[in-house]
Computed example of a mutant assay.
Amino acid sequence: MADKKDINPIMKQVLELGPTLAFFLLYIRIKENTYTMGGIDYSGFIVATLLFVPILLAAMGALWFLTGKLSRMQIFTAFMVIFFGGLTAWFNDERFFKMKTTLVYGFFTVTLGIGLLQGRSYLAFVLNEMLPMENEGWMILTRRLCLAFAVLAVANEVVWRTMSTDLWVKIETFGFPLALMAFLMLQFSLLQRYLIDPDQES
């Protein structure tokens, strides 16, 4: 197993968030165009989706090379992008790529929910080393985040089924991530009393 390596935080953010931003910029640039390949016409959205896959894989490869590891979430997200990006191109149907977001959020909802039914927090299993917190705090955060992922899954279904592709791309790129980030920041501020101070504990 590769050793974990330190990486500049700014570079890490660029590699993690850059592919999604690149997809957005590509889509904005070519959304009005139609491309013919093998006698089949493809919209700018589908071409941007196809280009997004190698960009994401290149960023993940660079992240693995620089840090020595990839999280399970990153690997799962990459698999979903490749799988649904492939379906989008194969069937020439942008709905597959739009559904990917629902399934990703739905997967997290179900996974966290299974842990809760077992009286466990899978979040704590993944993040406890990075953010030491009492078990009660992890259970509270897991319940809230499980609900948040469920809301985002439903919201994505509503957005892509009732709104334009242009609006979906903007909400997918900026709206959902910012909403999730704001939610997490609020939760960590509310759960401060459950955080464990390593110095005090020692």
Rank of each mutant, 00 (worst) to 15 (best):
I171T: 13
Q118G: 05
T109P: 03
L15D: 04
I40K: 12
L147P: 10
E134S: 05
Y42N: 01
F76Q: 06
R161G: 12
I30Q: 14
R144K: 15
F79W: 11
T162F: 15
P132E: 13
L190E: 11
K4D: 01
F84W: 12
G61N: 02
K31G: 09
L178H: 07
F76W: 07
P19Q: 08
A48K: 02
E157P: 04
L21W: 08
G86Q: 04
A150M: 14
W64F: 12
M37G: 01
M80K: 07
A89C: 10
L21T: 04
F83A: 13
D197L: 00
I10P: 03
G113T: 05
F183T: 01
Y194D: 01
I196P: 00
D199A: 09
F108C: 12
T88F: 04
D6Y: 12
E32P: 00
T88M: 07
K69H: 14
Y105G: 06
M73G: 11
L87K: 07
D166N: 15
L63M: 04
L51H: 06
G115T: 01
T34K: 04
L180G: 01
L195E: 03
I40C: 02
R143S: 06
F125Y: 03
I28G: 04
A58Q: 03
I7E: 08
P132C: 13
P198T: 04
V53S: 05
M181T: 00
F84Y: 11
V151C: 11
K4T: 05
A2K: 11
K69T: 13
A153M: 15
L178P: 08
T111I: 03
I40D: 02
Q74I: 09
F108E: 05
A153I: 09
F174P: 05
V53Q: 06
L51G: 04
M11T: 15
L116I: 06
E136R: 09
I140E: 13
T142S: 13
L56Q: 08
Q74N: 06
L195W: 01
T111D: 02
V104A: 14
M99F: 11
T109W: 11
L145D: 08
G85D: 08
S121G: 10
Y194T: 03
F96S: 03
I46P: 06
I40M: 05
T173Y: 03
F188T: 00
R72S: 15
G175I: 05
E201T: 00
W138R: 02
M130E: 15
Y194E: 02
M37P: 01
T109K: 10
W160K: 15
A58D: 01
M11C: 09
L141C: 02
G113P: 03
E32D: 13
M185T: 00
L127N: 07
K100M: 15
A179W: 01
S43P: 04
L145N: 14
E157Y: 11
M130P: 00
I140P: 10
A155W: 14
R120V: 09
